[in-house]
Design a protein around this nucleic acid. Structure first.
Lengths: 212, 212
DNA sequence: TAGATTGTTAATCGATTAACAATC
DNA sequence: TAGATTGTTAATCGATTAACAATC
């Protein structure tokens, strides 16, 4: 993890994919792999593999290739997956519930330590490893637990007010499932957007314009 | 909708965003907008706005700008959102249930007409507008209803066998929440992947390397 | 007509791919 | 040593931005 500065988003967004393929190879007890072979498996060019990996360090060895387990470990470190960033879930609707139950936060660098909703019928519910609390208690909870990230699973129109509270509490990282533009409001926030409807519209476009 | 051929994916993936912003402006009864103003609102360059829109036709008017409602309608047509592609949900776990309940398929070009699971405890459940059926009945259902798209909400290891059946039934479009590589298996399939764990890993990377 | 703003071409920038010398 | 394969530089390709003539 030597020279990670000014890495482009194109490269960064490919890292999880490298990590997945290397994890698979590691599970299959593959010991070493060349950029050529890895590229073939991942359906990219060998040049890209070598360029991408070299953004972070010289992990390979001429004439040999890359050690699968070592490279996997390097990328795990680069991604910071050993972290346990304390995170809260905002919104315990269908979506938030699905995430709390379904996402393996531990392996992805996070620990989900709390969940909040304004809906009285949801408060007290257990989802995944957490119990849904009243969003009114957000401040006291965050102050007690130094929350670093929030997973926003509430409708767009409700985001702004809760976001303001989270930001005031020092939360700077957001996994955002709404179309509210967090970056426009807080330029220093780290934001990953998941826009499901955009993805589905893109599918629709490609079906509609399939033979164009 | 005149000349949509060889449009790059970069442009295509921006269309839903234009559509969203134009829909908002339209709701606010804004009648016309210049590329400059739209660019400002969307935080992109005016050049990009004009280039992007001109991939599909000359929707503007010199000295005037663009009619918000007309442009919105054009993009709606380009995306094909007026469609009602018959689609099935595969997997009625937390995630599939959340999608069935939460996603507004009608506005996104699809009609969800069926849902399937192998788990006996899920079969018969009503989620959103559909009743979960036994996946054993997939063939008879698809033959009766000419299904065009499938939303895959099952774990990676279960995708292959179900995908083979769907493909054999003529389904060629997939909204894929697993890490199974559909395109590698069926090159002519239209696939939109949603890789939630990749997104969360990217957030983790950016938090970890925040000050690099 | 004068002012505004598009559509489109040309210039720039960044990302990907190719090539190859370094080296295990 | 000979063969393999990296790390890295150079070439290519594509996407973004700037500029401006066309025109409403």
């Amino acid at each position: 993890m030597s020279k990670n500065e000014g890495i482009s988003m194109s490269v960064i967004r490919r890292l999880p994919r490298y990590y997945r393929f290397l994890s698979e190879l590691d599970e299959q007890h593959v010991e070493r792999i060349s950029s050529n072979k890895l590229a073939q498996i991942m359906n990219v060019t060998a040049s890209q593999v070598r360029q991408d990996l070299n953004c972070f360090g010289g992990f390979g060895q001429q004439g040999y290739g890359y050690s699968v387990s070592a490279l996997r470990q390097e990328i795990q470190n680069i991604l910071g997956l050993h972290s346990h960033y304390p995170a809260v879930l905002i919104g315990a609707g269908h979506f938030g519930t699905a995430l709390a139950n379904h996402v393996d936060f531990q392996r992805l660098g996070f620990t989900l330590i709390g969940g909040f909703d304004t809906d009285a019928s949801k408060i007290g519910m257990t989802i995944g490893t957490i119990v849904v609390q009243d969003e009114a208690d957000l401040e006291s909870f965050c102050r007690a637990h130094r929350v670093e990230a929030a997973f926003l699973c509430i409708p767009k129109q409700n985001v702004e007010s809760t976001l303001n509270r989270l930001y005031a509490l020092g939360v700077r990282s957001y996994w955002n499932f709404s179309h509210y533009d967090i970056t426009a409001k807080y330029a220093d926030a780290v934001v990953e957007n998941v826009h499901l409807s955009d993805s589905l519209m893109t599918l629709c476009y490609r079906m509609t314009n399939r033979h164009a």
